[in-house]
């Protein structure tokens, strides 16, 4: 698996898109820091960008990479390699190179600004960790979609829909259900609703850590009341890990049964 990971990783590192992605975060980091002049405000703005953008890039990149490397995959399948190591290697290659672009692109300007001397360093770490989790989750979901759909156009369509649903539509539905059932106790519903969407989960996680009650919203408040800040953080992390494991498991199972 490590060999496949190595080839996929270097293949992506040579591609122009990794640099574009890296440069984008670099620019974003620099602009935010020097416009805001305030590290913790910059972290909040970044959170809002990351939480929407990282899933989008992860999904699109994942689907694109899978379809583009179809030939490579077929070549590998005829070699004495396990299917699970081929697909996991490719998946990790994509996810790790995307995470690297994110971490380096944001890390460099923040370090240059003097992050290590600031109190915001833990918030910033958390931001990067959540970004990495979101990359892992959405790349895995994208691989699932691509493995299930032979048709490229369909695959892309489903991938975009998935992103649109989790990043935008889900929140709308969630909010509507809260308004609709406001006469009932909604604590449990809103907790479960947040856990089932990795984007919402990441947002709650960061806001809990930043401890900004004004931005927490109803779910965040419930989270905090229910679990307390620390326990809430742990629960959110556990959920994020589950969100990574389940799609990765499906990649392994699905790839075992697929014909090429």
């Amino acid at each position: 698996m490590l060999k496949i990971l190595k080839y996929s990783f270097f293949d992506l590192m040579r591609s122009r898109w990794s640099y574009v992605y890296f440069a984008f975060y670099l620019l974003l980091g620099i602009v935010l820091l020097f416009l805001n002049n305030d590290l913790s405000k910059a972290v909040i703005t970044l959170m809002n960008v990351i939480i929407v953008l990282v899933p989008l890039i992860g999904t699109i990149f994942g689907v694109m990479y899978y379809y583009n490397s179809k030939e490579f995959t077929e070549l590998l399948l005829a070699q004495p390699l396990k299917r699970s190591s081929i697909f996991l290697g490719q998946y990790l290659g994509v996810a790790i190179s995307l995470s690297m672009s994110l971490i380096l692109g944001l890390g460099i300007p923040f370090i240059a600004y003097g992050l290590f001397k600031s109190n915001a360093i833990w918030d910033f770490y958390l931001l990067l960790i959540t970004g990495t989790f979101l990359t892992l989750i959405f790349t895995a979901l994208a691989f699932n979609i691509a493995l299930t759909n032979e048709n490229k156009i369909k695959g892309f369509g489903y991938a975009i829909l998935l992103w649109l649903f989790l990043a935008i539509i889900y929140d709308g539905l969630f909010l509507m259900s809260l308004v609709l059932f406001e006469d009932y106790p909604l604590d449990k519903l809103s907790l479960i609703g947040t856990m089932l969407n990795p984007i919402d989960l990441s947002r709650t996680l960061i806001l809990l850590k930043l401890d900004i009650s004004a931005l927490l919203g109803y779910t965040g408040a419930v989270f905090k009341k229910f679990f307390g800040t620390n326990f809430g953080l742990i629960i959110s992390f556990v959920m994020l890990v589950i969100w990574v494991i389940l799609p990765v498991l499906r990649i392994v199972l699905k790839s075992k049964k697929k014909d090429f």
């Binding site: 293949d11 040579r14 591609s15 490397s69 179809k70 030939e71 490579f72 077929e74 070549l75 005829a78 070699q79 004495p80 390699l81 396990k82 299917r83 075992k256």
Partner: peptide
């Protein structure tokens, strides 16, 4: 469910589809 036996096979695929880059 085995992959090691492919060490004993040399396979020439039908259309040479290789990674282009």
């Amino acid at each position: 469910n085995s992959s090691n036996y492919r060490h004993k096979i040399d396979y020439l695929p039908q259309i040479a589809n290789f990674p282009n880059n």
